[in-house]
Computed example of a mutant assay.
Amino acid sequence: MLFSLVGDAAAALGLALDAAHSGTSWNVTEVYVAGLVPPILFAPLIGVLADRWRARRLWIVSLLAQAVALGAATVLPALHFRIAMLAVAGVFGVAASAVGFKLLPDLAGTEHLSRANSAVSVANSASGLLGPALGATAHAIWGSTALLGFDTSSFLVIAGAAVIAVPASSAQATVKSHPFRGASAGFRALRESSVIGPMLPLLIGLMLATSIEGVAGVFYIRDVVGNDTWYGYVLACWALGSIPGAVLAGKGSLKGRQGQLVVIGAGMISAGLLVAGLVPNGFVIAAAFIFAGLGNGAHNVAVRNSVHSTVPETFHGQAWAAYSAMSRASVLIGYVLGTPNAALTSRTLVIASGALPLALTLGVSFLLWRRSAGQALQVAVGEPEAGQEKRGSLSA
């Protein structure tokens, strides 16, 4: 998996660098939009397929389809064609992610699910650390064709591993109905989750805020540290912190506290971004990013564990595809809002990217505390627990 994630990050960077060298700034925008918009549009339908078709078969088909799309991009060097193939691969990438999420309890076993989600998050963090560095180096030596070829081979390797490792009986289709009905079921399942539902505004706000910083920070942090090399080192601090955060969140002792980890992680991310904006010092920003990354790693694992534990198994694929669509939509909007302008400087936007989710974290924490206190009071005065609303509980 890490092999493929690093390949994806490196190939996307290679195309972005090709677009930047093409002389048209909109080509860079095209690369990022192609990686976001098609998956957003198709994610709900893909989630339905993940729950209503044989998961193993759909996973293998999705992996092979990504290999075909990227292989075509490797062979034909036209920039716009390559960007189009990146979009196709992104759509099938959502399918592979949704099915992989659905298959994980079968493959890892429910007793090891938290650790498995931790390992997935560690791989994602490591790819964010290794992919850009390796991609930039390889692009300078061999160009984007080699990067696309590497990414193609990674999906072929994973597809082969899936054929061998995933039993044919694993995660059979769980719903027998027309595959394109109920595309909104994934969003509904997230809203009805006892943990994720009450925190959806916080999760969306957090994804939006980090995307705003992702654009504004390019200008602000580079201005603070003085050059591109140090900017890259500061960015790497986030991924560096997220790896131990993901490992710690996978500990068995935290199994019943996933909801709390979602909120704590969100608070750490928000605080880190706020400090980074308030203190224009490279070393302070690096330390703040390590702290925020630590919270980000724990937050991501806790979200995955919470969806697995509070959403019915029959909706796992749809719920995760819906979450992926919300994530990409938030990123797309954040990229637009995070562009500095005459009214809002890059530093102001970075400060806002920390202040917004911090306010949401405090607000959601207060509301959930009030609900939990109300439930505790009902139990104390002798009202029956059966049938009580559990949406306010922070335990997953």
Rank of each mutant, 00 (worst) to 15 (best):
V88I: 14
A165E: 13
A168D: 09
L5W: 05
L377F: 10
G226Q: 12
A133N: 09
N296Y: 15
Q260L: 12
V350R: 01
S353D: 02
A292L: 07
I40A: 02
I269Y: 01
A386C: 00
V37L: 13
V175M: 04
V350T: 08
G197S: 07
S365C: 08
T145Q: 11
I83E: 02
V157L: 12
G338S: 06
L148M: 15
T361D: 03
A96T: 06
L103H: 01
S346G: 03
A78S: 05
V122N: 01
P39L: 03
A171M: 06
Q258C: 10
G317S: 04
V94G: 02
V61D: 00
G143S: 10
A276D: 02
T152Y: 04
Y335F: 15
F180G: 04
L273M: 08
L358F: 06
P244I: 10
A239D: 01
P179R: 04
P44D: 04
A288T: 14
L377W: 12
G374Y: 11
S97L: 14
A396W: 06
A302N: 05
A302I: 06
N124A: 12
T24E: 15
L356D: 02
E30S: 14
L190H: 09
V379E: 01
R347W: 00
V336C: 00
A162C: 07
Q388M: 14
T345K: 06
G245H: 07
L58Q: 05
L104C: 07
A173M: 03
S153L: 15
F315A: 14
I333H: 06
F101V: 14
N27I: 07
V6N: 09
A84F: 08
W230C: 00
L349D: 02
L337H: 01
F3E: 15
I40H: 11
S211M: 09
F150K: 08
L273Q: 09
P201Q: 12
L367I: 13
S169W: 10
F180Y: 13
L76M: 11
G109P: 03
P244Q: 07
A189C: 03
G232S: 04
L70W: 13
S193N: 08
T345S: 06
Q172K: 12
Y32F: 15
T345G: 04
S270P: 05
L235W: 10
A171K: 01
S22P: 03
W238Q: 11
G131P: 08
M85Y: 01
G217T: 06
Q378G: 01
G256W: 03
S169Q: 15
F366S: 07
N341C: 05
L2Q: 08
A43Y: 05
D228K: 12
L362H: 06
F155R: 08
S242W: 10
L278C: 05
L64G: 02
H21I: 00
W142T: 15
L79P: 06
F291R: 02
I243Q: 07
G265F: 05
G90N: 12
A292R: 09
A72G: 11
A126T: 12
L202A: 04
Q172T: 13
G293D: 02
A396G: 14
L235R: 11
A165N: 11
M207T: 00
G259Q: 07
V262I: 13
V75F: 10
L377M: 13
P357M: 02
L278T: 02
H112R: 15
